[in-house]
Simulated assay, not measured.
Amino acid sequence: MPRTRIAALTTLAMIAFAGNSLLCRLALKGAGIDAATFTLARVVSAALTLWLILRIRAAPRGIAGNWYSAFALFVYAGGFSFAYLGLPAGTGALLLFGAVQATMIGYGLWTGEHLRVPQWAGLVLALGGLVGLVLPGISAPPLGSSLLMLGAGVAWGVYSLRGRRSFDPTTTTAGNFLRAVPFAAAVSMLTLAHTSFEQSGLMYAILSGAVTSGVGYVVWYTALRELKAATAATVQLSVPVITAMGGIALLGEPLTPRLLVGSAAVLGGIALVVAKKQTVR
C-alpha cells in the first residue's frame, strides 16, 4: 500500500477517535443519557452500519472477527463511557492513551521491534507534550474511574494489536461489533434502574457508533496492517490534541499557550517516530 494512502487512512482514523471523545463528552455531560445506554446504542448502531455496508458491497455471506476481540472492544467502549462519568477530560485522555502506549509498545518490544535513537527521542517528546497538555488539570482522580480508563486503554491496545491480523477489515469489525452487542446489553440490563436518555444523547451515541466507531474502526484496521506496533501506538497520541482542537471549535473551549506548545510537542514527536522505518533485529 502506498505510504500516502497509509498516512491518509491513519489520519482519518485519528479524527474518528477524537470524534468519539467529543461525542461522548457531549452525551454524558449534558445530553441526559447514562453510560450503559450510550455504550449499547454505540455498539448496536456500529454493528447495523457495518452490516449495511457489507450488504451494499455484496460481500460474501458470513462475518469474521472473534469473541476475544469482541470482548476487548466491549471492555474499551464500556470502560471509556463509565470512566468519563468521574474523570475530567484531560485526566481520562492521559490514562487512556498512556495505557494504550504501554500495551502496544510493550508488545512490540517483546516481539522484537526496536526503535532507533531519534524515534525514542520522538516518543519521549510526544509523551512529554501529552503530559504537559493535561497535567495541570489532574488532581487526585477517583480510583475507580481511573482503573476503568486504564482498563479501557489496555483493551483498546489489545484490540488494535489483534486487528493487525485482519484480512478484511469491514467483515472483521462487523463481526466484532455484532458479538459485542450481548455484552453491552447485559450491562444495560444490570443497570436498568439507572437508565435515562434524551433524544440528543441517543443521537450522539448513534453517531459515535455508526460513523466514528463503525466506519472509523474499519479505516483503522486497514491502516494497522501496514503499521508497526510502536508506530500505531505513538500516532494515537495525536487524538487528545485533535480532541482539544475539536473542543475549541465545537464546545467553545479556550485556545491557550499550553495547548499550542503541547500540541506541537506531541505532533513533532510523532513525526520523529514515523519518519524512519523501524527495524527488527
Score class of each variant (00 low, 15 high):
M245S: 08
R179M: 13
V235E: 08
A93F: 01
R162P: 04
T222S: 11
A265M: 15
G268R: 14
S166C: 07
F74Y: 10
G98Y: 05
T4P: 08
A121C: 12
P118V: 05
V100H: 03
R42M: 03
G144K: 12
A249M: 09
T49H: 08
Y76I: 01
S208I: 10
S188D: 13
L9D: 11
L87N: 04
H114C: 08
P2F: 15
G262V: 04
A152Q: 02
G78W: 02
V280Q: 11
F82I: 00
G65R: 03
T11Q: 04
L94R: 04
Y84C: 00
F17W: 05
M189K: 05
I33C: 01
T222W: 06
L135N: 07
I15K: 02
T243L: 07
I15G: 02
R61M: 01
A102I: 13
A35S: 10
S81P: 06
S160C: 07
Q236W: 03
T171G: 14
M1N: 10
T170M: 09
N176M: 11
W51F: 09
A174R: 08
K228P: 04
A121H: 05
L148W: 00
A264E: 14
L143S: 02
A233G: 11
G106L: 11
A210K: 09
L178T: 12
T212L: 09
S146P: 09
I15N: 04
R258H: 01
V134C: 10
S146E: 09
R25C: 03
T10L: 09
G252L: 06
L26G: 13
A185F: 09
S263P: 13
G30V: 11
L9G: 02
G151S: 12
G62W: 09
P136S: 10
P141W: 00
G163K: 13
A185R: 04
A275S: 14
L123I: 08
W156M: 10
T222V: 07
I206L: 13
A193R: 15
R162S: 10
A233R: 03
A7L: 14
V134Y: 06
A36T: 04
R5T: 15
T191S: 06
V158A: 06
W220M: 04
I6H: 06
G132F: 05
I6Q: 12
A59C: 06
Q101W: 03
F80V: 02
V218N: 02
Y107K: 11
G201Q: 03
L95F: 03
T103R: 07
I33Y: 02
L123A: 11
T91D: 03
A41T: 07
I63S: 12
S45G: 14
I242H: 00
R164V: 06
E253G: 02
G252P: 06
L87A: 06
G214H: 10
L250Y: 09
L130D: 05
L26M: 11
T171H: 13
N176S: 10
G78E: 00
F80P: 01
L237R: 00
G201W: 12
L23C: 13
M149W: 08
A13I: 01
R55L: 14
I270W: 01
E253S: 05
A59W: 02
C24A: 15
T173A: 08
K228D: 08
S81M: 05
S69E: 01
P169W: 12
G209I: 08
G78D: 00
R5L: 15
G129A: 14
A184D: 09
R116K: 12
T11E: 08
A18W: 02
W156S: 08
